[in-house]
Amino acid sequence: MKIKIFLTIFFISFNLNLGSNEPIVESKIHKNLRCLVCQGQSIADSNSDFAITLKMVVKDLIKDGKSEDEIYDFLSEKYGDWILYNPKLNAGNLLLWSLPYLVLVFGGVIIVFLIRKQSKKT
């Protein structure tokens, strides 16, 4: 009985969020672009000439039907990967994206190993 209630509530609460497949959000892209002339700010937070220009260009690219990734590719081709706050998943960044998870798995294995070792003894 309880499990039924549990499951019902669980699914209802997720169903509410379906269909929230929004179009590309400009502000999300802005937050992912480093303002090159500022100190550690994204172009969303800046009002410099560079940030204003880039916001206009992003708007145009969206209007042209470019996807989020295409916009990032375009800009990193012009300004380098430095401009993207979300590093691309490529050969050079493989370690960056994978090492945290490797650590997570490795740590789990160690803990299981420690516990196993003990339960064998007893």
């Binding site: 430095w82 590093p87 050079g92 960044n93 960056l96």
Partner: peptide, 11 residues
């Protein structure tokens, strides 16, 4: 590799 990248909030 002389390649400057940024690692920011999205990561």
């Amino acid at each position: 590799s002389n390649n400057k990248i940024s690692v920011g909030p999205p990561f």
